[in-house]
Design a protein around this nucleic acid. Sequence first.
DNA 1: GCGTCCAGGTCTACC
DNA 2: GGTAGACCTGGACGC
Length: 318
Amino acid sequence: MTDLKLSYQFELSAKPPYSFDLSVHKPAGWWWATPDEIWLDKVLWTTIRFDDHLIGLKLWEKRKDESPSIHCSVYSDFERSGEHKNRLKDLLKRSLRLDENLGEFYRIAENDDILKIVVNDLRGMRIAGWPDLFPALILAVTLQMAPFNRSQSMMNLLITNYGDMASFNGKSIKYWPSAETIAKTDIEDLKRTAKLGYRAQNLKSISETLVQGFPSFDNINSMPRDEAKKKLKELRVIGDYSTNLLLSDRGFSLDVWSAKIFSLLLEGKETENPREEIPKLQRLAEERWKGWAGHAFVYILNDLANLSRKTGFDLTKY
DNA sequence: GCGTCCAGGTCTACC
DNA sequence: GGTAGACCTGGACGC
């Protein structure tokens, strides 16, 4: 348990339209930094690992009008330098995507039957960017070849058995294990305690590569997209689907589950072989939504209940 | 209670 | 360069 004290506070501005609620507390239930973060009365208490230390964050939307802004209280275990503070601000801006201009996406949506619905429901929502690389890699590895509730179980067991806990502002929040911890853990222990199966070897290999020396997430995100994908693919079992999931400028990345949904939306029919259909659906989406296909993906998957009502397809059954 | 089936990808061997 | 088959095992499902 790491006890953190209030260290400093600042505000960050966001390009309008911006919805803090929808961006950090997604309708589909996705967390931003850790599954254990707390969302209460429109305030987010969460934790990230920054420079190998846990940091507590308390975030809330200070202004909602044409100049939206977020208040950020930082809880830390020692005094931070100005340079450290600036890097943290940059990280938050990037991973909360506060400077993103959604104007073109919303213009395309005006003439698109599907996007028109989701953009109206979720105006101002940002696609979250991962604040930390190793947790995003844990997600990518545990999603592979498993139903989502099993993936969740594996992630929760990893956090419970190997993660760290930050305590601040009256809250205690569990955070993902570090790459160093997993690199030191025996594969058989990972299999037994986190139910990882064959993924134990994969996750351990990734953690070892990170510990031996790998570019930071900020570094990777500043690379041209193709170069960033190539670098991430050097990691064991990180392929096209996972790299799209990891990069903040994510593309349209279908898996078996989402292929079933997009087959209904884009072709009007249920697919018998979702895995085989993925390349075709991917092409259809990229032709239809061009560079905004990744945004279309996230908006649609966060609005399935309402889309089902409006389109007549039961998109929530998968 | 027990057996069967398959999952929110990726890699490898083989053609 | 294209593709079938293997990969752990928890949990859903049928009986």
